[in-house]
Simulated assay, not measured.
Amino acid sequence: MNAEIDHRTASHADPAGPTAPTGHFTIRLSATRRGARLARHLAARQLDTWGWPYGSEPNRTTALLVAELANNAALHGRVRGRDFRLRLTLYPEGTPTVRVEVTDPRPDRRPPAPGTLEPLSVDAESGRGLLLVEALATHWGTTCGDPYTKTVWCEVALA
């Protein structure tokens, strides 16, 4: 497990400075169900550290969205021997927001674009993860910064 944590919180932000992130958390996890479950737990812990306690609506929503994106990375973005990366970035100014990014090694398997997801039939057994992301996140999307990875991201308003 590789983790990079910046423990600064919104209380350390310079009120005279420009809007900038004040908290970062990055970790690489195995592209397995266990890695996806650990991503959810670590995200909830990090939100608690940043001042949104366990059990609060913002913490539960963020943890749920991390679980969905991490599960998709482990299921659809998996390449044998390669991890996925979880990155959380806290933007406390204005409406506090956390940006969740999950990067996997499958740029060829991009999800549908935001706003183009089709509703599922009532008896469908899977496929609701991105519908939850679209319903609960303020914004979401996919980026490919290089030819070897893709990042699915979402933003969650914490207030």
Rank of each mutant, 00 (worst) to 15 (best):
T61P: 01
R82Y: 01
P105H: 03
E68K: 04
G35K: 00
R33N: 13
N72I: 06
A44F: 02
E57I: 13
R109I: 14
G141M: 07
R99D: 07
W140F: 12
E155I: 04
I5V: 13
T9K: 08
N2W: 08
G81L: 08
R106V: 02
A157V: 11
P21V: 01
E155Q: 09
S121F: 13
L65T: 03
M1N: 13
A113H: 12
T32Q: 09
A39I: 03
P119F: 15
I27V: 15
N59R: 05
E155S: 09
R60W: 07
A74D: 02
R45A: 12
S56D: 10
T61L: 05
H7W: 12
G129Y: 05
L75Q: 06
L131E: 07
V98G: 01
R85Y: 04
P96Q: 09
V133C: 08
H24A: 05
D104P: 01
R33I: 09
L64S: 06
E93A: 14
R40I: 06
A31F: 01
S11T: 13
R99F: 14
D14M: 11
P119K: 11
D48Q: 09
E155T: 10
P111H: 06
P112E: 13
T49S: 11
G115R: 14
T103G: 02
A73Y: 01
P96C: 04
R87G: 01
P105C: 07
T103K: 00
P107W: 05
R82N: 01
L64G: 05
V152C: 10
D48E: 12
A13N: 03
T9R: 10
A67H: 05
L38T: 06
G51H: 04
L42C: 06
C144S: 07
G141P: 05
Y148H: 14
V66C: 01
C144V: 15
P114N: 14
S126D: 14
Q46K: 06
A16C: 11
L64R: 05
A31N: 08
H7V: 09
D123V: 14
R28Q: 12
R78M: 03
T97K: 12
H24V: 04
Q46V: 04
D48A: 10
D83S: 03
Y54L: 10
L132C: 13
C144P: 03
G77Q: 00
E4Q: 11
T62S: 04
T62K: 00
P147L: 15
A124T: 15
C144G: 06
E57V: 13
S121R: 13
E118W: 11
H12Q: 09
V79G: 07
E4W: 09
R34N: 11
D83I: 01
A137M: 05
T22W: 03
T149R: 00
V66Q: 02
H139Q: 13
A124I: 13
T151E: 00
T9N: 08
T138N: 14
D123F: 12
G23H: 01
G77R: 00
V122K: 12
D146S: 11
W52L: 08
L42D: 00
A113Q: 14
D14S: 14
E155L: 08
T97M: 06
R40C: 08
S30D: 09
R34K: 10
E93Q: 15
C154V: 07
R78T: 03
G81R: 10
E155N: 04
P147E: 14
A159E: 08
V79R: 08
T19M: 15
E118H: 15
L64A: 10
S126P: 03
S11K: 12
R99N: 02
D83N: 10
G35V: 03
L136C: 10
G81K: 05
G23S: 06
L42A: 10
